Amino acid sequence: MNAKNVCVISGSRADYNYLKLICEKINKSDKLKLLLIITGMHLLKEYGNTIDLIKNDNIPITKKIPMYEEGDSLSMSLGNVVGETICKFTESFNELKPDIIIILGDRYEPLIAALTATILKIPIAHIHGGDISGTIDETLRHVITKLSHIHFPATPTSAERIRLMGEEEWRIHMFGSTSVDIAKSETLLSKQEVCKKLELDGYKKLILCLQHSNVFESDKAGDQMKITLQVLKDLNLQTVIIYPNNDAGSKLIIKEIENNRMNPNFKIFKNLERRVYFSLLNSVDLLIGNSSGGLIESPMFKLPVVNIGTRNKDRERTENVIDALHDYIDIKNKINKGLSEEFREKCQYLKNPYGDGTASDKIVKFLEELLINEQLLVKKLTYKV
Score class of each variant (00 low, 15 high):
residue 190 S to L: 02
residue 111 L to K: 00
residue 134 G to V: 13
residue 101 I to P: 02
residue 128 H to L: 03
residue 73 S to V: 14
residue 381 L to R: 14
residue 342 E to T: 12
residue 259 N to F: 06
residue 92 S to Y: 04
residue 241 I to P: 03
residue 178 T to L: 07
residue 40 G to F: 14
residue 362 K to L: 13
residue 184 K to N: 11
residue 315 R to Q: 15
residue 145 T to F: 10
residue 237 L to Q: 08
residue 262 M to R: 04
residue 13 R to L: 13
residue 100 I to A: 08
residue 99 D to Y: 12
residue 258 E to F: 05
residue 274 R to W: 01
residue 103 I to Y: 00
residue 295 L to Y: 03
residue 108 Y to N: 06
residue 377 L to P: 09
residue 202 G to T: 08
residue 82 V to Q: 06
residue 115 L to V: 11
residue 39 T to M: 11
residue 211 Q to N: 12
residue 110 P to N: 11
residue 259 N to H: 11
residue 297 E to R: 05
residue 306 V to T: 09
residue 107 R to Q: 03
residue 352 N to W: 12
residue 214 N to M: 02
residue 320 N to M: 09
residue 239 T to Q: 10
residue 39 T to P: 02
residue 261 R to M: 13
residue 64 K to P: 00
residue 129 G to K: 01
residue 215 V to G: 01
residue 126 H to L: 09
residue 92 S to M: 10
residue 280 L to S: 05
residue 226 K to L: 03
residue 353 P to W: 11
residue 351 K to T: 15
residue 292 S to W: 07
residue 369 E to P: 01
residue 49 N to V: 03
residue 273 E to M: 09
residue 140 L to C: 01
residue 161 R to D: 06
residue 136 I to Y: 15
residue 159 A to D: 02
residue 54 I to F: 07
residue 206 L to H: 04
residue 270 K to Y: 02
residue 269 F to K: 05
residue 130 G to H: 13
residue 249 G to M: 00
residue 324 A to H: 06
residue 155 T to K: 02
residue 362 K to A: 06
residue 235 L to M: 15
residue 213 S to R: 04
residue 35 L to S: 07
residue 221 A to Y: 00
residue 280 L to M: 12
residue 166 G to P: 06
residue 309 G to V: 09
residue 58 N to M: 13
residue 307 N to C: 14
residue 220 K to D: 14
residue 185 S to G: 14
residue 49 N to D: 15
residue 89 F to P: 03
residue 341 E to G: 01
residue 344 R to P: 05
residue 342 E to A: 10
residue 138 E to W: 04
residue 14 A to E: 07
residue 195 C to G: 07
residue 241 I to Y: 11
residue 134 G to R: 06
residue 140 L to H: 02
residue 213 S to M: 03
residue 298 S to V: 03
residue 276 V to D: 11
residue 56 N to S: 13
residue 34 L to F: 10
residue 97 K to E: 15
residue 370 L to G: 03
residue 88 K to N: 14
residue 25 K to H: 06
residue 255 K to Q: 12
residue 322 I to Y: 06
residue 195 C to L: 07
residue 52 D to Q: 13
residue 265 N to E: 15
residue 278 F to I: 08
residue 348 Q to Y: 10
residue 6 V to S: 07
residue 20 K to D: 05
residue 213 S to L: 02
residue 329 I to Y: 15
residue 289 G to L: 08
residue 353 P to I: 09
residue 40 G to N: 14
residue 281 L to G: 03
residue 314 D to Q: 15
residue 219 D to G: 10
residue 375 Q to M: 07
residue 332 K to H: 09
residue 7 C to Y: 06
residue 355 G to Y: 00
residue 351 K to C: 09
residue 314 D to I: 11
residue 138 E to R: 09
residue 375 Q to P: 01
residue 11 G to L: 05
residue 368 E to Y: 03
residue 333 N to Y: 10
